[in-house]
Design a protein around this nucleic acid. Structure first.
Lengths: 248, 248
DNA sequence: TTATTTCGTGCAAAAAAGTGCAAAATCGCA
DNA sequence: TGCGATTTTGCACTTTTTTGCACGAAATAA
């Protein structure tokens, strides 16, 4: 079998089954694994597949359908950079959803070894992109607006977790009214997450500070850390610092 | 034998067998390999064949592959169109993951009122795009390769469901070996889905028919309906029709 | 952690390709 | 037909490509 022919075959196999093993291919084509490895390396070099330990993956499967709209994305990247400093190896991390959390997932250091528990479809996809992080998904009914799972079963499952830290992207925060939202079911889930975490971290862009919505998630006093794109010393954040919240 | 005559012979041979070896041609036409090499070089120069070390490949073979990305998606769209005809209002539908299932989710009729239960992150996102469909997510650990949830909890939850129909995008099907896959955890989940459904529908492009992988999901007899992009009367599908499977 | 698998690199043998050349065949043209 | 020019072909030789193997490094699994 010709080399080019062999590579075509491999390419077809990868695209058909999404993933191939070096050993299987070596077996099927009857050449040494070294040869297959070299083929995979070449195909990966030219961008046709994605190489992995032990085989290769289809490119089409792994390409990210990127978030459209870069609305406020820079700010959210800054927030994500700050937030990842709170994560340590071995942690169990409860995570909400939203674009800020997605940025957090993308900002994770390469070699991090941690477990992320979330009910957000988009956040889960971002977390699974990470090479070593484990991802646990909280199942239940999916809320169409927010693309997170909501409902009694989700809340029950969250209540069984003892997480080290909880990251919530929040919609509104105000010193008196606390954390608020306008979706009753989402609020229930966030409350459950707060109850199941040793530490609660709220992520928000400065625009949402000192705003509030209809339904209360939690009082300020239940919050441990607040992350914004602002300097921690910013006067806008003073009420929260005064309330004993660590602002970064 | 004239030079032109010889080159035409080579061209026929290439298009017939998709590949030729320099040594074979030299043998068949009784000229030195140098001459064959020069012929191949000329034919490749004028774009009639693809040269390779040791011989040459058919051009049609190679190019049809290059467009395979789009080509495959078209087939999957056809499959999705056929599969949606099986869905009725009010149904509870178990759904696996994969690109074919994603197409199914996009092909749902606007006014459909049904409940989709899935453990695939990408499929769930597609289903939530539908205006009226309800989406239930099966939670557990997320497998990085396939981006579906796997594990005992997922299987336990699936076992509590009594679905009307189950759509599985499958990796390999063969009359004797049945449905097979190469990821043990994914297989467990698919088996659970089959057990929990009144009807089992397998979706697959024709390339995967009569191929098999390492781990068995189910025997052919457990399958009710097979959906491919081919005409149901296609001879390739005969063994499955004969096995009592409804092929559409 | 330890054990196993897989990877990357260098190396050597074998196959194939490129190169220059000369003999043979073919062509062009009177 | 004759004769030089051109093309084609095979051969000897060198260079490149391909492939499998060995061995230490790295990654993964237990």
């Amino acid at each position: 079998m010709l080399k080019k022919e062999r590579q075509e075959f491999i390419l077809r196999e990868v695209n058909l089954h999404n993933r191939v093993l070096t050993s299987d291919l070596s077996d099927a084509i009857n050449v040494s694994e070294d040869t297959i490895r070299r083929d995979l390396a070449e195909l990966a070099e030219s961008g046709k597949i994605i190489k992995a330990h032990g085989g290769a993956l289809s490119r089409s499967f792994h390409t990210s359908f990127h978030q459209h709209g870069i609305y406020l994305q820079d700010k959210k990247k800054i927030i994500a950079q700050k937030a990842v400093t709170l994560i340590r190896d071995g942690m169990f991390i409860l995570s909400g959803g939203g674009t800020t959390i997605n940025e957090l997932a993308r900002a994770l250091p390469e070699q991090l070894q941690a477990t992320f528990i979330t009910g957000s479809l988009t956040a889960a996809i971002e977390y699974t992109r990470h090479p070593t992080a484990d991802v646990i998904f909280i199942g239940d009914r999916v809320s169409k607006n927010s693309r997170i799972t909501v409902g009694g079963d989700a809340i029950r499952q969250i209540s069984h977790i003892n997480a080290d830290i909880c990251f919530l992207g929040i919609n509104a925060i105000e010193p008196e009214k606390g954390l608020t939202d306008n979706d009753w079911e989402v609020v229930q889930v966030k409350q459950a997450m707060i109850r199941s975490s040793k530490k609660v971290v709220a992520l928000t862009i400065s625009e949402k500070i000192n705003s509030f919505q209809k339904i209360r998630i939690a009082a300020i006093s239940e919050l441990d850390i607040l992350v914004t794109e602002l300097d921690p010393a910013d006067p806008l954040l003073k009420p929260y610092r005064d309330a004993g919240i660590q602002v970064i």
